[in-house]
């Protein structure tokens, strides 16, 4: 039985990755689970310089989901290259570095710094709803998304995954725009902008007022958008959004995802990624599926 997949020329031992921002660079979870069992780790977004992020509260739980407004706090690429990459390089798993920026030159600078690093793939976050500049400004306009994709592709030495926002009218148009600009893959979905109000205090639950909704509440939206993107482009898709169990991951694969990232579920159970991989294997045994690649986009 084969669980390995090929993501933009990079082989993954299984299709399960950790979603950016929910897993740090793996170190915090290494005591609780086996990083070697992951197809890959997608790191927290990193920029050219350190970012302080948003004021607190940054987290609010909602029914079947959560809102976050971390604001892309990160230590900057210098620390990341010295500390986080060497840590991950000790494990038998793929390293996907998630990149954020406020301007095109920020993104380009990070991609250049990573060119000679032992990194397998870059994931470019143009879809963070929690920062004012950069991020989502590129993710909601197909021309801007294409321009930034081109700029990064011009310097990147690793395959480039563009991470798309669900906060758009037509996800297929966005996917087509970055594919045409040279993206090697797309990942979707990032969080959906939401808001929670504390009725007793008559205040916003988050200091940022709005935050990104993640968790099972957004899963059906992710399935629909992965399906629409899969119908629109030929480049591979990393599917994510509310995956809590093997069945959720399989839905995204059947809708067209080559790999699946697991985010919020790590908070609910730090060993969830391993349980999901085991669950997919069981499903394949039960259903007599020899090769997981038979399942990718099998529902049309």
């Amino acid at each position: 039985m084969n669980m390995g997949v090929n993501l933009a020329g990079i082989s993954l031992k299984n299709p399960i990755l950790t979603a950016s921002g929910t897993f740090g660079s793996g170190e915090e979870y290494a005591q609780l689970m086996d990083l070697n069992k992951l197809g890959g780790v997608i790191t927290k977004g990193v920029a050219n310089v350190p970012w302080e992020g948003n004021p607190t509260p940054r987290i609010a739980e909602v029914y079947g989901g959560m809102l976050n407004a971390i604001g892309l706090q990160n230590p900057g690429i210098d620390v990341f290259v010295e500390r986080d990459i060497p840590f991950l390089a000790k494990y038998d798993t793929r390293i996907v570095v998630n990149v954020c920026g406020r301007s095109e030159s920020d993104y380009v600078e990070v991609a250049e710094r990573l060119a000679d690093q032992p990194v397998d793939l870059l994931e470019i976050n143009i879809s963070c709803p929690n920062v004012k500049e950069g991020g989502i400004a590129y993710g909601q306009n197909p021309h801007a998304a294409a321009e930034i994709t081109k700029a990064i592709k011009a310097v990147a030495k690793q395959p480039v995954i563009m991470k798309l926002s669900p906060n758009v009218t037509d996800i297929a148009e966005m996917a087509r725009a970055v594919e045409a600009a040279g993206a090697d893959a797309v990942s979707l979905i990032n969080t959906i902008t939401g808001m929670k109000i504390d009725v007793r205090k008559r205040r916003f639950a988050l200091a940022n007022r709005t935050g990104g909704l993640s968790g099972p509440a957004i899963h059906p939206i992710a399935v629909r958008m992965v399906y629409e993107a899969a119908q629109a482009v030929r480049i591979p898709i990393v599917g994510l959004g509310g995956v809590m169990c093997a069945e959720d991951a399989l839905e995204l694969i059947l809708a067209g995802a080559t790999a699946v990232s697991v985010g919020t579920a790590n908070f609910t159970n730090p060993r969830i990624t391993e349980e999901i991989t085991d669950g997919i294997r069981e499903y394949m045994l039960e259903e007599g599926v020899e090769d997981i690649r038979e399942l990718i986009g099998a529902v049309r």
Partner: peptide, 16 residues
């Protein structure tokens, strides 16, 4: 005290 998501230092939700 602060609102937490991961509890282990990965999500940066709970900073002061």
């Amino acid at each position: 005290e602060e609102r937490m998501a991961c509890g282990v230092g990965a999500c940066l939700g709970c900073v002061c």
